[in-house]
């Protein structure tokens, strides 16, 4: 009897649970409507002060960090509708003129694009220089940390020939291999090697992913590797990479590509925006204009995304929450 009763009870309980779920679900239904209402109200309130913000997202994590931080602030504080667009640099710039892209938040220097799109450089005027974003791009020749530790003298280019044989691979035809990188970046390594009389051959990895994987493996397996690399880059937070000293950069030493024999200059990274958008009354214009942060800031957010596996939105939100002062300065 008790069993039967229990069975009954269980049945009743199940019904009750189903009923509750249904009610909850129905309440959930309410929540869609509520939020719709809320969205409408907010839209009415915001009154188109910001509107759409089309943010190009170039394909590297540091860029992603900057873009999503600016985007998050624009969305949360200014009520913008932010559209992130995954694009390579050239395509992004092309989008300025058509209204499809408003902001490129991190530009490593594209003289050719500036010539086409920036009025002062002879372009069609669809792009406008919005100043530096505070990050400094450092480009150079890097070796994995273990190598620098075991052979400290390797960090001077003058000693590289001594080790050339150790850097040889199946691709370098007996010479030492120098790993070139993604074709997107300005690289003079072939000329530098020639002009410094180094016994190396440039092999292009062809992509950032390939370069990063190569350095990771080299550090992990203690393989010999030297190649083109840069900061800010999130991988610096994961493995040690050391820069090899080249003859110092002087003004004009990279003007003739075939004659380059010096280090890369440090590049202040810049913001470029669509001219039409910059002349609009969008409240986000000021934000983008004022946006400025450091390499460390960017590396932190990039590490949230890569090492901690956070989504770019979450990573940006976390940083924004932790750094109200900096954010306020941009909004001010």
């Amino acid at each position: 009897m008790r069993n039967t009763r229990n069975g009954w009870m269980r049945g009743a309980r199940a019904v009750a649970v189903v009923a509750c779920v249904t009610v909850v679900a129905a309440c959930g239904g309410g929540s869609i409507e509520e939020q719709t209402q809320a969205n409408e109200d907010q839209a009415a309130e915001a009154g188109g002060e910001c509107g759409d913000l089309n943010m190009a997202v170039n394909p590297w994590v540091g860029y992603e960090a900057s873009a999503y931080v600016v985007g998050t602030v624009a969305q949360e504080e200014l009520g913008c509708t932010v559209n992130y667009k995954d694009l390579k640099e050239d395509v992004s710039w092309q989008g300025f003129g058509t209204g499809e892209v408003d902001v490129v938040i991190e530009d490593w220097g594209h003289p050719d694009l500036e010539k086409k799109f920036v009025e002062s450089k002879g372009g069609d005027g669809s792009a406008t220089d919005f100043g530096e974003n505070g990050n400094v791009g450092i480009i150079g020749w890097y070796v994995p940390g273990w190598l620098a530790e075991e052979h400290p003298d390797i960090l001077d280019y003058k000693n590289l020939n001594k080790y050339a044989k150790d850097f040889a691979t199946s691709e370098s035809g007996g010479q030492g291999q120098f790993l070139g990188s993604d074709p997107s970046y300005v690289q003079f390594d072939e000329a530098i090697i020639d002009n410094l009389g180094l016994d190396f051959k440039v092999v292009f990895s062809g992509g950032e992913a390939a370069t990063i994987t190569a350095f990771e493996q080299a550090q992990k397996n203690k393989e010999w590797l030297i190649g083109y690399f840069w900061e800010p880059q999130y991988i610096h937070a994961e493995i040690p990479l050391e820069q090899v000293k080249l003859p110092p950069y002087t003004d004009g030493c990279q003007d003739v590509p075939a004659k380059v024999a010096c280090a890369y200059p440090d590049t202040p990274l810049k913001k470029f925006v669509s001219t039409d958008w910059s002349e609009s009354d969008s409240t986000a214009v000021g934000l983008v204009k004022n946006f400025k942060w450091t390499n460390d800031d960017q590396n932190l957010v990039a590490a949230y995304i890569t090492s901690d596996g956070m989504s770019p939105e979450d990573a940006a939100a976390k940083w924004v929450k932790d750094n109200p002062d900096k954010v306020q300065a941009w909004l001010g």
Binding site: K88, E89, H110, D112, P183, F204, G206, G207, A210
Partner: peptide, 15 residues
């Protein structure tokens, strides 16, 4: 890392 024509195509797309 294969270079050659493939690299040239990617280069053309990138710059």
């Amino acid at each position: 890392g294969a270079g050659a024509l493939g690299y040239d195509v990617v280069l053309g797309f990138s710059r």
